[in-house]
Design a protein around this nucleic acid. Structure first.
Lengths: 155, 155
DNA sequence: TATTGTTATACTCTATAACTATA
DNA sequence: TATAGTTATAGAGTATAACAATA
């Protein structure tokens, strides 16, 4: 792409969009060896984090990820096809699919997550450590508000 | 959307994506009275800014906007349908379409740009003025590098 | 009747390939 | 031959509507 005119390069919308495109591209490259993309990794992360407390149905996982239940079907289809997650009917409510990581999924998650974090660090490298941390906090405030961002900072 | 789990809420990819979605939504609402969306406004901005120097062809405008020439066709079609831009054949090279704002387009640009800027300020309001400025500079560094971001800061 | 998962369908955004008219 | 604009088409991503199984 040619350098954008100054009139665009100072717009927040442009800056956010292209920063996200650039990061998505970097993450895709980092995750390619594992055969998944960033969205699929996010599914694995949520399933692992929440399943530690209690098993998740497709709909519950979809809610946590902020995707439609029809989108979730395709997402789980792909991950199941790769042998990373498993569906099983809930014994308590036979309408529900409990979705959990397979051992291969757990392994993929661990290694892919390391690769993703490294790509994120490389992406943020032009900023200092302090400025990078501040960016994350600032974006948390914009997304969740002052309170939620402060809570996240504690964790 | 339900609150995302902590494992997602600290990911840069998630934060950038949802900040952009939120801003796009706010901009769409602010621009609705003018019958255009943020991408169409960006086209008007580029045409106005660059046409001041010399008239732009569709392909040149597409390059500045970072979109494909086929995408540009649809974009100009829509704006021409709304009476905001005009195509005319270049006398020097009859393959080229010179694209320029109509008087209605200039008027729409002025007023819509004010509304967009106001929406952007509201979006950034939870941050202080200083933190908002720093966010923009930080994103410029991530997108264009330290040098280009410094130049943009001068302007 | 309502809910979960599923399928079919459609809509947006984007890009590739092929066509046309000009050069 | 190459370029600018156009059209047709296809691929991601997402959402709505309808259906089957279950509650």
């Amino acid at each position: 792409m040619t350098t954008p005119p100054e009139a665009l390069a100072s717009r927040l919308g442009y800056l956010l969009k292209h920063a996200q495109l650039k990061l998505t591209e970097a993450a895709a490259q980092a995750l390619a060896p594992f055969g998944i993309d960033g969205r699929e990794l996010a599914v694995l992360v949520v399933l692992a984090a929440e399943s530690a407390a209690y098993p998740l149905s497709q709909l519950e996982a979809a809610g946590l990820l902020g995707v439609d239940r029809t989108t979730m079907v395709a997402l789980v289809d792909r991950l199941e096809g790769k042998g990373l997650v498993e569906r099983r009917r809930s014994p308590e409510d036979r309408r529900k699919n409990i979705v959990g990581l397979t051992p291969a999924g757990e392994d993929c998650l661990r290694r892919a997550e390391r690769a993703r974090a490294a790509a994120e660090r490389r992406f943020l490298a032009p900023l200092g450590k302090e400025e990078a941390d501040r960016l994350v906090r600032t974006l948390q405030i914009l997304n969740f508000g002052q309170g939620a961002a402060a809570e996240a900072a504690e964790a």
